[in-house]
């Protein structure tokens, strides 16, 4: 497998000169990444479609309505997985940023760059579905509930990262800055969460009953877990596809630059 690298053509990404052979470093080679992810991506996409094809109809049509909330409880099957992805995705972003800062993996840079719009989308969907759910249940589109507020702050962090990474003409500089910002955010998220919890209990004590307290019945829990797995697979497939596209985009740009340089030379 190691000899196959040369077949993928000249690599436009700067490779670490003496990359260690073992561990994660094996995947830092863009050529190998493209080949491997090209094999994984169809399976990942198919798995996402399959699991969502089972989970969504199960949750939206065949699971029982809630005894209190009726049919509106079905928003849960989109809302909760999006909330998981919004938070888990940010943990992934922080991890990728550590990889990018310490080992300077160009692939980690690209993955972080392509992760943040998808993460922002998941967070936006979480907020939007929550708002749609809040209208019939709480009688309002928005309350300054502690959880809602922290998810809103998380949304701003995602957007800030996506905007900062793209704000530099030098993409590598943008990636470094984004990585540092993601780590600042990762330190700050618990502080924001704590202060918002505390602010909320100060201002409006437990005015909103939450679903979490009584625990979920298996009739709701199993489709929810299925949907959660399906959306996670779809999230991973989206990020992988975007990262592949970004690698290829860079490769095309490097080839065009090389061609232009050749044309200029006498």
């Amino acid at each position: 497998m190691d000899t196959a690298d040369t077949r993928t053509g000249p690599s436009p990404l700067p490779l670490p000169a003496a990359a260690p052979r073992g561990g994660l470093h094996r995947f830092a080679n863009p050529g190998r990444f493209l080949r491997l992810s090209g094999q994984v991506l169809p399976w990942l996409t198919a798995a996402a479609v399959l699991v969502l094809g089972i989970g969504l109809p199960w949750g939206l049509f065949f699971s029982p309505p809630d005894w209190q909330q009726g049919e509106t409880v079905r928003i849960l099957y989109v809302h909760v997985p999006m909330a998981w992805l919004a938070m888990g995705g940010y943990a992934g972003l922080a991890l990728g940023s550590v990889l990018s800062l310490i080992w300077r993996h160009p692939l980690a840079d690209l993955a972080c760059r392509e992760l943040s719009p998808v993460g922002a989308l998941a967070t936006a969907l979480c907020l939007a579905t929550g708002s749609l759910w809040g209208k019939p249940m709480w009688g309002t589109w928005w309350v300054w509930d502690a959880r809602l507020t922290s998810v809103l702050v998380l949304f701003f962090l995602w957007l800030g990262h996506a905007a900062l990474v793209r704000a530099f003409d030098d993409t590598e500089r943008g990636a470094r800055m984004g990585a540092i910002l993601a780590l600042i955010g990762a330190v700050n998220v618990p502080i924001v969460k704590f202060s918002v919890d505390w602010w909320n209990t100060l201002h409006q004590p437990a005015s909103v009953t939450r679903l979490g307290a009584p625990g979920l019945h298996v009739d709701i829990l199993y489709p929810l877990l299925t949907c959660g797995l399906g959306f996670t697979l779809a999230f991973a497939a989206l990020v992988l596809a975007r990262t592949r596209a970004a690698v290829m985009e860079r490769r095309i740009r490097a080839l065009q630059l090389a061609a232009a340089r050749r044309a200029e030379a006498p």
Binding site: A167, F168, S195, W199
Partner: peptide, 26 residues
């Protein structure tokens, strides 16, 4: 972080203000 960024002046409040929420609360 925004040094040398395009539209850095607009970006800066977007990055800093969400992180400053705890200070506003307390």
């Amino acid at each position: 972080l925004t040094l040398g960024a395009r539209r850095g002046g607009v970006l800066l409040p977007l990055l800093v203000l969400p992180l400053a929420i705890p200070a506003v609360i307390f």
